[in-house]
Structure formats: C-alpha cells, structure tokens
C-alpha cells in the first residue's frame, strides 16, 4: 500500500479494480481539522479524468501496469489481433480499448500496448503514421493550396480531409493526435 505522503505525479494506483494515473497531487488542510491530499486522476481504461481527496493517513493500492511492444497482425471481425514481439504471444483487442488507434492500424505495425493485470487497457500508436489513400476525388494538378480540403479514405478505413492535389493511391503522413493530414510522402520501405 502507498501512503499519501508518497503520492507523486505519474504514480499508478487502483480504485474499485480500475487503474488510475496521478496527474496532480497537492496537500490541502481545511481551516480546522485534518489534512487531505487532493489528487487529479486519469482512469487508464476509460481516459476519463476525476478528482479525489484522500485523508492524510489514508493509503492507496498500487496498480501494476506494464507496457509491451506489439505488432498488429489482422482484424478478424471479432477483434484486432496483436503479437507480443518478445514472447510471440497473441492477444485480441476490442475496438473499445483501441479507441482512436483503430484509425491508423496497418499490417505489421508496431504499437505499445498497456496491460493491467494481464488485460490490455490502452494502445499507443506513433504520433505520425503513413497510410495510403484508397478513395478520393481525382487530384487537381497544380493546385498547391493546402487550405482547401476534400474528403478522403485511407487504407485503415479512416476518413479525413486532404488538400485538393492529393490523388488516389498516394501516401500521406497523418498526425494521430489530431487525426489530421500533415503532408504527402513516399511509400515507406517494405509497405
């Protein structure tokens, strides 16, 4: 158990069988009475943020969360199958857990998967990924404007807006934090 005076940012604790990471920790003492530790916590499964106060003598249970490098293999309709790159163990991850990451997956892609009690709880993809345009209106040559956009679909099935000059089967780089087009790029090696 972890005592409140050891609470720190990034500490992972368990509340009601769910893992939380501490975003903020501060000591407060109401005018009279005992001290409290005010925390801001992010639920590592749902991503939701909550605040919670602990009495100064209270303890919290540490949560063991491990990150593994994994490779995306295939989607069989029931779930997305990933392989642990060290142990070759395979695990199926549901779209709920994948969240936005589902928009950027491609075969053999390497991602980081957080496990809590042997259960996958979140999947981190790189900040930038390169994907092929599978569907869009034909590109308008010579139109180099980047502020006029048109809809497009990439190989993962994700829809986003791209500049008018982008053509079908071209490759683009996407910022996965924003879900937005960054630039046109070459087909990455081995893809």
């Amino acid at each position: 158990m972890i005592k409140t005076d050891q609470f720190r940012k990034r500490l992972k604790i368990e509340i009601n069988n769910e893992p939380y990471v501490m975003l903020d920790v501060d000591f407060v003492r109401p005018g009279k009475g005992q001290g409290f530790v005010r925390t801001k916590l992010r639920n590592m499964m749902t991503g939701s943020i909550t605040e919670r106060t602990f009495k100064s003598n209270e303890t919290a249970k540490p949560a063991t969360v491990n990150d593994y490098d994994m490779q995306f293999l295939y989607n069989d309709g029931d779930g997305y199958t990933f392989m642990n790159m060290e142990t070759y163990d395979q695990v199926s991850i549901s779209p709920d857990v994948l969240g936005d990451a589902v928009n950027y997956l491609y075969e053999n892609m390497e991602v980081s998967v957080a496990f809590y009690n042997d259960m996958p709880i979140s999947v981190d993809v790189p900040n930038f990924v390169e994907l092929e345009i599978t569907e869009c209106e034909p590109g308008i040559k010579g139109n180099s404007a980047t502020n006029t956009l048109k809809p497009a679909i990439v190989s993962s099935g994700f829809r986003l807006n791209v500049p008018l000059f982008i053509d079908q089967n071209e490759w683009i780089r996407i910022d996965t934090r924003e879900g937005s087009y960054v630039e046109r790029c070459k087909r990455p090696e081995g893809r």
């Binding site: 407060v28 109401p30 009475g33 005992q34 409290f36 005010r38 605040e51 919670r52 106060t53 009495k55």
Partner: peptide, 11 residues
Amino acid sequence: WDTLFFQLFLN
C-alpha cells in the same frame, strides 16, 4: 462527521 463534512466541502 467533520471528516465527512470536509470530504464533501473540499470536493
């Protein structure tokens, strides 16, 4: 009672 009061008050 006071501790419960503070929990509610602080939050």
